[in-house]
């Protein structure tokens, strides 16, 4: 299990947060996801054997949000 934090462009509606949460939860190997609305960050704990950072970034970007940095 690893945890990564993705810094997104500024989130402006709480429903965006809900959307990202639902979409990422649907990926395989996601253990925990937290969308930090105020700081526009997504914190994901996942199983590296089942998914990876690229997959998560792809999902977030497919929803229309730019990922600015990953920590």
């Amino acid at each position: 299990m690893t945890t990564k934090t993705f810094q997104l462009e500024t989130l402006t509606c709480p429903s965006c947060a809900a959307k990202i949460e639902v979409a990422i939860k649907r990926l395989k190997g996601i253990n925990e996801i937290q969308v930090l609305f105020s700081s526009s960050r997504v914190k994901v704990t996942f199983d590296e054997a089942l998914t990876d950072v690229t997959e998560i970034v792809k999902t977030i970007e497919a929803l229309g949000f730019d990922v600015l940095s990953i920590k």
């Binding site: 429903s15 959307k19 639902v22 999902t59 929803l63």
Partner: peptide, 15 residues
């Protein structure tokens, strides 16, 4: 519409 479609792809029904 664009955002609606993007979200629906992940089976999310938003505003």
């Amino acid at each position: 519409v664009l955002n609606a479609i993007r979200a629906l792809k992940f089976r999310y029904l938003g505003i």
